[in-house]
């Protein structure tokens, strides 16, 4: 086991025994369940209405009526929930003075940052996997196109990873977990709103640049089933840039 793997293993073990993870998971899954339930019920009402107007059994499109709205609202839950997942990563090491142990061990800071990131990502992966129940159950009752569901999940995966990377950065700059959580929430919300700001400015170079920087436009395309290299590059570079900044903060913060 390499040092980085040891950090991942230790983080996961700590998470397993920490109540935070269970609360975060439970809240996330309950809200996800409620949102998808609402979407399904809405879809049902629309189907009945269509039937009354057209007088025939309408074919309802689950992709448009259920998955897309659920994916959009999930992004908002992640904005609130993922900062809680990352807030302790570095902040707690500072507080408990275990940071000194990590920094005086013969391992690179990149291993520490990578280990921390992989650990929270694995937890997030688990959370996301549990939401898979919804499409599986829906598939038993109605047919729909799986491809946009997969790209939607890809979008959730990438955007969530970006949120986690931002959360790690926020956690590295403070030893107070609450500040870390609130800071990453603030950063994420601001970046989100940049999308709206970009659209106000319209199709100008400045407007387009600002809109590009916001993660929501890229997510939107993935949810609609469009896999564009541009969006994948956006997320990958965003995650790497955030991890790089985290590396710099950890390196200087001692």
């Amino acid at each position: 086991m390499t040092p980085a793997q040891a950090i991942v293993a230790k983080e996961l073990r700590s998470a397993y025994f920490s109540p935070i993870i269970y609360v975060v998971c439970a809240v996330f899954l309950v809200i996800f369940g409620v949102l998808s339930y609402i979407a399904v019920v809405n879809a049902g009402t629309q189907a009945i209405r269509l039937m009354q107007i057209q007088g025939l059994a309408a074919k309802i499109n689950l992709n448009d009526l259920v998955f897309r709205p659920t994916f959009y609202s999930t992004a908002i839950i992640l904005l609130l929930v993922l900062p809680i997942l990352t807030m302790r990563s570095f902040a707690e090491e500072h507080k408990l003075k275990t940071f000194e142990l990590l920094m005086t061990s013969p391992i690179g800071i990149n291993h520490i940052v990578a280990g921390k990131f992989v650990a929270v990502f694995v937890i997030y992966l688990g959370m996301l996997a549990l939401t898979g129940v919804v499409p599986v159950v829906l598939a038993m009752f109605n047919s729909f196109d799986w491809a946009p569901v997969f790209t939607g999940y890809l979008g959730l995966l990438l955007m969530g990873a970006l949120f986690l990377a931002v959360g790690l950065l926020a956690s590295a700059v403070t030893e107070n977990q609450i500040i870390a959580a609130f800071l990453s929430f603030g950063i994420l919300l601001s970046v989100w709103l940049m999308g709206a700001l970009g659209s106000i400015l319209g199709d100008t170079p400045v407007g387009n640049t600002i809109a590009y920087l916001s993660f929501i436009e890229h997510y939107d395309r993935l949810v609609r089933g469009l896999v564009d290299t541009k969006d994948l590059v956006y997320y990958a570079s965003g995650i790497l840039f955030m991890l790089f900044l985290t590396h710099r903060v950890v390196e200087s913060d001692r």
Partner: peptide
């Protein structure tokens, strides 16, 4: 301040440190 992780047992902690030291 001893740099210990409260949520680990002594032997788990030492194993972790050992791995950290390569």
């Amino acid at each position: 301040t001893p740099p210990v992780y409260q949520e680990l047992t002594v032997s788990e902690y030492l194993t972790f440190v050992g791995r950290l030291k390569g």
